[in-house]
Write a protein that binds this DNA or RNA. Structure first.
Lengths: 106, 106
DNA sequence: ACACTTTGTAAGTCTCCACTTACGGTAAGT
DNA sequence: ACTTACCGTAAGTGGAGACTTACAAAGTGT
């Protein structure tokens, strides 16, 4: 059920921008907050949420905290999407092959 | 920017259950609402949101509205995830190959 | 014409959460 | 030791949205 956490966390636009910022590589909190329209504590809270969802990982480097993407967190969400794909296709074929059983009252 | 809409819409657990219900195939609103812990109007609102995000499509059959999954809506989200994958990998390699230069305060 | 079914929408309530400011803790430089 | 930089957390606030009930519209059967 972790893909649900990923979806919940990635729903917020600002948090998504934080996450996308890490796509280019690991960054410290200050660097991430620079250029974003919110305060630095807000970014810290977003990173905390992302970490709780398993989407990022943290590494200490002196007084700095370097955050980077954790790909395994994305994997579960990706699998969920893929499962959707196949099932939807199969269901569509089933629907197309169905002769004319549309009378489904009661 | 449509993948953002998909993420926003799929963040809600109830709405996700509605969407997953359609994975098995097209269904009318009543059939979807049955078994869910919310009222039928709530399901209608969720379906409206899913449709606005391009994740489902609607087909009228008499007085019923049959909803089904729209795979193109998922495609953009999938591409976004994939782009993340590659970029994160590339960034990781770059980081690994980097000697220990580029340290500002060192 | 009437009753029933199926669904969408309006209006209102209430909970959740993203954000801010303020503060505390830790590391590094002088 | 003092100062400065970097960061996380606490507390409080405002706004978004998920849900409910009530109502209206459109199709179907008798």
């Amino acid at each position: 059920m972790t893909y649900g956490d990923a979806l919940t966390v990635l729903a917020d636009p600002t948090r998504r921008r934080v996450f996308e910022r890490l796509r280019a590589g690991p960054h410290a909190v200050n660097a991430i907050a620079a250029g974003l329209p919110v305060s630095r504590p807000a970014v810290s809270q977003h990173l905390k949420a992302l970490k709780a969802a398993g989407l990022v990982q943290e590494r200490s480097e002196g007084v700095r905290r370097i955050y980077s993407v954790r790909r395994e967190g994305l994997a579960e969400l990706r699998d969920w999407l893929d499962s959707f794909w196949g099932d939807a296709l199969q269901a569509f074929k089933q629907e197309a092959e169905k002769p004319s059983a549309k009378k489904r009252s009661r």
